[in-house]
């Protein structure tokens, strides 16, 4: 195992976060605060409790998920796309590092950043609403696993993308809509029965539901299914990345 290699990639990627502090951390925190003000305080005060939870507190897990999913994906995709774009990937590919070590470095850094963001948003939420965390270890577990899963997705998007437009297309056109429609701002039990069944096709439902369970002990789907879905995503994304490196897909000629 090339520990120095992993460390080099990991800290290089984290250094990028500090170089772009406003874009990396301040911007997501600001936009999440705006969500709390608009949905939590302004509109939320006129919405009845859901499952016995005030609306402002109800949306906290969904808002954190929204940020984690989009930030993990964009950060990890940008992290590996930039070396491809600038040509500096030659150094990674000619170094004595395995695929696993490269993935640990890049994905680990993107996930770390998302976890830090999630915790900052959680702390920010305290300024707007009162909330409790029923299962704090599970909450942390879901935070880490979801960050890892979507950083893996971002990493494979970064390898796949041929342009900055393609880099943005999945987070903007797929992940954000799925998160909004995945019960971030409502319980899926509030939907008509037909749409409840359709919504179950949305994988983000299982992530938001599991995460909300760790906060309030209530969920739209069983927490075991949520964990199972995360395992499926991790296996799927890791498998695709392994295939990409094995075949040299869009990396090696």
């Amino acid at each position: 195992m090339n520990g120095y290699g992993i460390k080099a990639i990991y800290f290089f990627e984290l250094a990028r976060t500090w170089r772009t502090l406003m874009q990396s951390i301040a911007s997501p925190v600001l936009s999440t605060s705006l969500y709390f003000i608009v949905f939590g305080s302004a509109i939320g005060s006129r919405i009845v409790e859901i499952d016995g939870i005030g609306y402002g507190a109800f949306i906290i897990p969904g808002l954190i998920m929204l940020t984690i999913l989009t930030e993990s994906t964009s950060n990890a995709s940008f992290g590996i796309y930039m070396p491809k774009f600038t040509g500096t990937i030659y150094e990674i590919l000619s170094a004595p590092v395995s695929t696993l070590e490269i993935v640990i470095g890049y994905v680990g850094a993107a996930a770390t950043k998302s976890i830090i963001l999630g915790i900052i948003i959680l702390a920010t939420a305290r300024f707007f609403v009162d909330y409790s965390i029923e299962h704090p270890f599970w909450m942390l577990g879901f935070l880490v696993l979801t960050s890892l899963t979507f950083s893996l997705l971002g990493f494979l998007i970064g390898i796949w993308a041929n342009s900055f437009e393609q880099l943005q297309i999945i987070p903007m056109m797929v992940i954000t809509p799925l998160t909004f429609l995945g019960g971030s701002f409502y319980s899926i039990t509030m939907l008509p029965e037909f749409w409840q069944k359709v919504t179950l096709l949305n994988p983000v439902v299982y992530l938001v539901s599991g995460f909300r369970w760790s906060f309030y002990g209530s969920a739209d789907v069983h927490v075991g299914i949520s964990l199972g879905m995360i395992a499926v995503f991790i296996t799927l994304f890791a498998g695709i990345i392994a295939w990409m490196f094995k075949t040299g897909y869009k990396i090696k000629s």
Partner: peptide, 13 residues
């Protein structure tokens, strides 16, 4: 920073 990165990447102390 970039030369330190390269040294680490190639597995050197």
């Amino acid at each position: 920073d970039t030369v330190k990165f390269s040294r680490g990447l190639f597995g050197c102390k």
